[in-house]
């Protein structure tokens, strides 16, 4: 896949595991460098998808980032320690959001 030619300087959390990253690069690039290609499951059929364009157009790199859903990973700059996970299907409601 991809190989980094420049050093990393921090880590982030993806699906519960630590991944090396460089502060300021996009989260999508961090994940690709770590060999992660499946970022989300589509709301239509549940199949897995990864980034296509890395420039904010395709919306195929959606992830859940620090509790926020449907975030475009290619437009999210890495901050050390950020916590990210796959976006599974459509937006879901967190416990705190449940009005019922």
């Amino acid at each position: 896949m991809f190989r980094r030619t420049e050093p990393t300087d921090c880590t982030i959390s993806w699906e519960g595991r630590d991944i090396p990253a460089r502060a300021g690069e996009s989260l999508a690039v961090t994940l690709l460098a770590a060999g992660v290609t499946a970022f989300r499951q589509t709301p239509v059929t549940g199949t897995e998808r990864g980034p296509l364009c890395l420039m904010g157009a395709c919306f195929d790199c959606l992830v859940e980032l620090d509790g926020q859903q449907n975030v475009q990973a290619c437009l999210a700059p890495v901050r050390p320690g950020m916590v990210a996970a796959m976006q599974r299907g459509a937006r879901h409601f967190h416990q705190s959001e449940d009005a019922a």
Binding site: P43, N70, A90, R91, H92, F93
Partner: peptide, 13 residues
């Protein structure tokens, strides 16, 4: 010209 909004898909609620 009545305006409409459509959102992303949400869980049935």
């Amino acid at each position: 010209a009545s305006m409409m909004i459509v959102t992303e898909r949400l869980p049935p609620f």
